[in-house]
Design a protein around this nucleic acid. Sequence first.
DNA 1: TGACTCATGTCAGTATTCTGACATAGATTA
DNA 2: TAATCTATGTCAGAATACTGACATGAGTCA
Lengths: 149, 149
Amino acid sequence: MSQNGVGIDLDKSLGYLLKRASSALRAAMEEVLRPLGMSVTHYSCLELLAQRPGLSNSELARGAFVTRQTMNVLLQALERDGYVTRPAEAPVGKVLPTRLTPRGRRSLEKATVAVRSVEVRMLAGMTETEQSDAFRILQSMIRSLRDGG
Amino acid sequence: MSQNGVGIDLDKSLGYLLKRASSALRAAMEEVLRPLGMSVTHYSCLELLAQRPGLSNSELARGAFVTRQTMNVLLQALERDGYVTRPAEAPVGKVLPTRLTPRGRRSLEKATVAVRSVEVRMLAGMTETEQSDAFRILQSMIRSLRDGG
DNA sequence: TGACTCATGTCAGTATTCTGACATAGATTA
DNA sequence: TAATCTATGTCAGAATACTGACATGAGTCA
């Protein structure tokens, strides 16, 4: 019943499985971030800034997998609420380097603990070898999809 | 600069890599489905129905990773345009079993060819062993996230 | 130098998805 | 049996993200 010669058998499709895994991860992250009043995109933005201070709006957008318009709206809110700062004028070009404020860093700390617990849970039951295999295979998938576009 | 003791190193995070892969896959699917005037959710709905005729609105929603309200809106449009049919009254309970029309099947055929090409591209460069490893590891991740919830 | 291309930040409007809510049908349980 | 719980289909409104568009600054190239 599941395979009739036509179509893609979803139960055997690696693409569908990838989507299932990603969906499960996102749901788990939303669950632990909700009590902190933070969305996944919100968290991603802060985490990116913690690791690479001075990232621009467009760079943050690409890192968080949203458009730069969407990230711009988020950054304006974060700036208004004192989580990040941006210079009034661009030091060079039009790029506005963004940085976390102490308040933003404090807010991120709690979120990081929550998200780390999710990642640890996801890795539970996987050997070191399986983890590095997963890393290598996922990178291969990304490369194939990007290059063949 | 990338790791300062605090936060999650995104370059080493399997969760972030999973998101990147899923995002790349979705973008590739959107690219090949756009010329057909079809969204990923739209395609997922038809593909699910091809494999499991009679699926209900709620079941389709879970299979396509959207809420049942969102799927309901899509189904009403698909029904209006003659791609699927639903009985006027539920045979049992409130569940309305949905089925593809010949028109829906024809529409799906083209989409399946397009999506299959993306999946083939994604699998390019992966050995049989790597594919089955990926399958097993992704299933392990899903299970861990679900059970520990 | 000047024309061209590309990337950025931002505003506005549109589209999509979600949350909240309700009535209803079947299953479960006291 | 009666009450309770769970799941479904659906409507309406809210939240979220996207597309389109514009001005501007930097790099490329003839």
